[in-house]
Design a protein around this nucleic acid. Sequence first.
DNA 1: TTGTGTTTTATTGCCTCC
DNA 2: GGAGGCAATAAAACACAA
Length: 229
Amino acid sequence: MSERTEAAACPIASAWTAQIPSDELELELQSVHSFEISKNFSKRRFNDDQIKSLENMFEAESRPEFRVKQQLANKLGLQPRQVAIWFQNKRARSKSKQIEQEYSTLKASYDDLSSKLESLKKENESLHIQVQRLRQFTLKDAKEEHAKDGIKLGTDETTKFLLETSSHELCMNACQNSVQDADSLGEVNNALHMAQIADGSLTSTEDGCNFETSVLLENSSCNSLWWEL
DNA sequence: TTGTGTTTTATTGCCTCC
DNA sequence: GGAGGCAATAAAACACAA
C-alpha cells in the first residue's frame, strides 16, 4: 500500500494518533469511534526535537528514500507519510526562500546599474553641452581671427574651412572623441589649453576660464567607467 | 479578548519516471 | 499502472497589535 492510500484510508485518524504521546493516547482513543473525531481532532505541530531531527536530515538529504523516512518516522514517533509530507513542504518553503533571495540579489544589482545609468546620462548631457560651447567659442574666435586677416566669412563653406583649419582643430576632434571614448579626456583637456593659449584666447593666468572646461572634463567620465555598459 | 496576518501540517490533483 | 514529486490550496495553530 502506498503512502497515499495508507493515509487516505483514514487520514484524520492516522495523523491524529501519530502525534499523540502514548500516555494521552488511551484517553483520546475514547472518542475515536464516534463522530467526534473531526471535532476532537486537532492538528498538532511537531515538537522542537522532531523539527530539529527533520531539519538535520533535510540538510543532509532533501529527498531521502522511503526507507530513510520510515526510520526517521519510527524514531520520532510519526507516520512515514507525515515525514514525507514534512519533506515536501520543507522543499517548497526552501524553494520559495531561494527565489526570494535571488530576487533581492537581482534587484540590488538592477538598482545599482540603474543609478549608474542615471549618472552617466547626466554626464553625457554635460559633455554635449561642453561640445556645443566649444563649437560656439571656436566659431566666434576663428571668425574674429580670420576677419583680421582679411578673409571674408559668412558662408557655410567658409565656416567649415575655418573649423577644419583653425588652431582649434585638435581641440574639436578631441572633444568629439571624448563623447565616444573616455580615454580622450586627457587629450581634450590638454588640447583645449594648448589651443586657447596658442590663439591668445587664454593666458596662463586664465585657467579658470569662461567655460571651466578643464574642471568639468576632469570630473567627467574618467571615473565613471561608462564603457562598462 | 478578538480580529487579522502568517506559518505549519495535510490534502488533492496532476505529472513524470520506471 | 504504481510510486513519488510538485503546485495549489485548505485548515488549524500561532503571533501580535489594538
